[in-house]
């Protein structure tokens, strides 16, 4: 039993050492996310704040909008997509080149938005009726 324990500790520390040396040398086994912002400079908050709090902002907005019916909030998921969708794919997800997925796959946090929400900017389904202004149009008015 003790031998197995020692063996396990040995293997684990070896793995840890390998990982840390790799990180120091900047050769992380997982490539750093490539973050391209297609329309920079128009974000609702500074980068630091967005990195730390974007999930709370989205959650707050979703609760306000869906449950209370508040429209035209400063933050909105469709607003995010407008600037962050890749120019080539038109989307924020789908490959590690795309904004949301790039970071989320790097930090291994599951993205739970795009199972339901449309990840493409200016997505036009074949709709016969009135073209709807995106949420951002009214956002502009709210500012």
């Amino acid at each position: 039993m003790l031998r197995i324990f020692r063996l396990a500790v040995g293997v684990l520390s070896a793995v840890a050492t390998l990982c840390s040396t790799g990180a120091v040398a900047g050769e992380s086994r997982v490539p750093k996310p490539a973050i391209t912002i297609e329309n920079p400079g128009k974000c609702v908050a500074p980068v630091d704040e967005m990195r730390r709090n974007h999930m709370d902002m989205l959650k707050h907005t979703r609760n306000k909008t869906l449950r209370e019916g508040v429209r035209g909030m400063k933050t909105s998921l469709n607003g995010c997509i407008e600037c962050h969708a890749s120019k080539s794919t038109g989307s924020v997800t789908g490959s590690n080149e795309n904004f949301c997925q790039a970071c989320h796959s790097f930090v291994a946090v599951k993205l739970d938005c795009w199972g339901c929400h449309q990840p493409q900017a200016n997505y036009k389904a074949d709709k016969a009726t009135t073209a709807l202004p995106a949420d951002h149009a009214s956002t502009a008015g709210a500012k």
């Binding site: 199972g115 449309q118 997505y123 389904a125």
Partner: peptide, 16 residues
């Protein structure tokens, strides 16, 4: 089933 091509204003998806 999994869905794609949602109306940006009408999110809907699998399992709900």
């Amino acid at each position: 089933q999994p869905l794609t091509g949602q109306n940006p204003e009408v999110p809907r998806g699998q399992g709900c």
